[in-house]
């Protein structure tokens, strides 16, 4: 398993598209240590590795695929209603290629 360092915490944070602040690392490292300590307890439970992981509460017998008919839940104007900046019914963002817009 990976080691927890300031560098890889910042690396994970950036992959998640945010930054951690310098003063936040201390709590962070402690919480990481705690969760790893707790998870160790789980590893020590007899036969744990043979148990099939449960990903969902229970099997839902009612699940049926809906008919393959195209429908729409959102109009274009609704879709952009909460965007910070729009142009021609589209969301405006800084230029992706070629420097400043």
């Amino acid at each position: 398993m990976q080691k927890i360092t300031k560098e890889n915490i910042q690396d994970y944070a950036l992959k998640l598209m945010f930054k951690m602040k310098e003063e936040e690392f201390e709590t962070f490292e402690k919480e990481f240590e705690t969760i790893l300590k707790h998870m160790d307890l789980i590893s020590k439970i007899d036969g744990i590795e043979k148990v099939e992981p449960l990903v969902f509460p229970f099997k839902n017998e009612d699940v049926k695929l809906r008919k393959d008919v195209a429908n729409s839940t959102l109009t274009t104007s609704d879709a952009v209603k909460n965007a910070h900046e729009t142009i021609y019914d589209e969301v405006k963002v800084p230029k992706v290629v070629g420097g400043e817009s």
Binding site: I42, I48, V51, F58
Partner: peptide, 11 residues
């Protein structure tokens, strides 16, 4: 997966 295994055991 171990967390999900605990989930299975308790459920």
């Amino acid at each position: 997966k171990n967390a999900q295994r605990i989930r299975r055991l308790i459920v």
